[in-house]
Design a protein around this nucleic acid. Structure first.
Lengths: 194, 194
DNA sequence: TATATTTCTTGCCAAATGCGAAGTTGTTCT
DNA sequence: AGAACAACTTCGCATTTGGCAAGAAATATA
């Protein structure tokens, strides 16, 4: 278990000395999740800022009728944490669930703040993680407005094909904003055309 | 034109000395927009971090077919800037347009960074602005998935009634993810019930 | 004031999606 | 292997929403 991939990720296009990133990486702790474990449960405060090195996770909430709604999928190479709960120190509405065995590296909120205050480069990193998440969410919202379910399906299939090996249809459906019945139909039509 | 409201806003629940906020506020410049002016145009880099004291703005993009899609409305007391363009220094896809005469206070990206590096409290403020925007966007996305158009209409009407005095129906409709025809029908049905 | 333009409403029909239920296939557990 | 359960597909029908077009109402412009 080396921190090699974590260190690569911390670079994130920044052109900063490897020594600084080495120093940052030292704060991160190794973590392993078995398939089916929860990285975060609704009602708890998210206190881990996790770099996912291996495996797949799914975030979901329960809507007012009690149905599970998938809000996100996480693949290797992404940061996993619930922004609002983590930074505002409030109870999470979201659950984050391991769809497969996962491995990664994390720091706590307190550690993150220590690093923020002492290392300017890490501030920039942290900000870029937030901004990236923001931009991603924005384009997702826009696609909910401007695109058909089939277009959203085609895009997800292209951008994250691995998800389809990890998650059952109904979870992908609620992520796309449709029912599993509809997704089944859409997938059938889509297969005909391609 | 006093900076009183700006200073109140900078407090944002933090319990920090007014002297620090006074110092921060000194960097902000006054700005006035006439009705119809653009605070940001697609293709330009967003370089103003604007506190809106008076007036109403609307953000929109053009989708692949060239239709305007409203992505946000801004009311007095909010920060107005395009997260991705501002922080990543890239060309904006969004336009931000004054629906009425507006007044506010802004700093540039360079000034914001100067403040970030020298004033820890301002870092926390900046982060909380991002986190707040993130949480708001998330709940908007969720409502696109779990709620009917009528429910979304009812919520917007409740949370931001002033928008209905400022924006034409079609802009509100595209924000809600429906056509103006549908919104007209929904509003009619809704009026019957209430 | 007259005219042009935009905004909003309404009607008709088509397409997309949801809902409930049934049936099939596949997986897990004992 | 057998039983139980979850995943996926398919059907018929209801509901929501879209697209187009016409007309009325409101607003802006000459």
């Amino acid at each position: 278990m080396t921190k090699e991939k974590l260190i690569d990720f911390l670079h994130q296009g920044n052109n900063i000395s490897p020594i600084v990133y080495q120093r940052i990486a030292e704060y991160f702790n190794y973590k392993k999740l078995a398939k089916g474990e929860f990285q975060l449960s609704a009602g708890k405060i998210c206190d881990e800022y996790l770099f996912l090195e291996k495996g797949y996770l799914r975030a979901f909430v329960h809507d007012t009728e009690g149905n599970e709604v998938t809000t996100n999928f996480y693949e290797p190479g992404e940061m996993v944490f619930e922004v609002s709960s983590f930074f505002k120190r409030g109870k999470s509405k979201e659950n984050i669930h391991a769809m497969s065995e996962c491995e990664g590296w994390y720091i706590t909120f307190a550690q993150l703040n220590t690093l923020f205050h002492s290392i300017p480069e890490f501030r920039d990193f942290g900000r870029s993680i937030l901004v990236q998440g923001f931009a991603g969410l924005k384009s997702r919202t826009l696609s909910m407005i401007t695109e058909t379910a089939e277009q959203r399906y085609a895009e997800l299939l292209k951008s994250s094909p691995a998800i389809f090996q990890q998650a059952p249809l109904k979870n992908i459906a609620s992520f796309l904003g449709i029912t599993d019945t509809s997704l089944s139909r859409i997938r059938k039509e889509f297969a005909k055309k391609h």
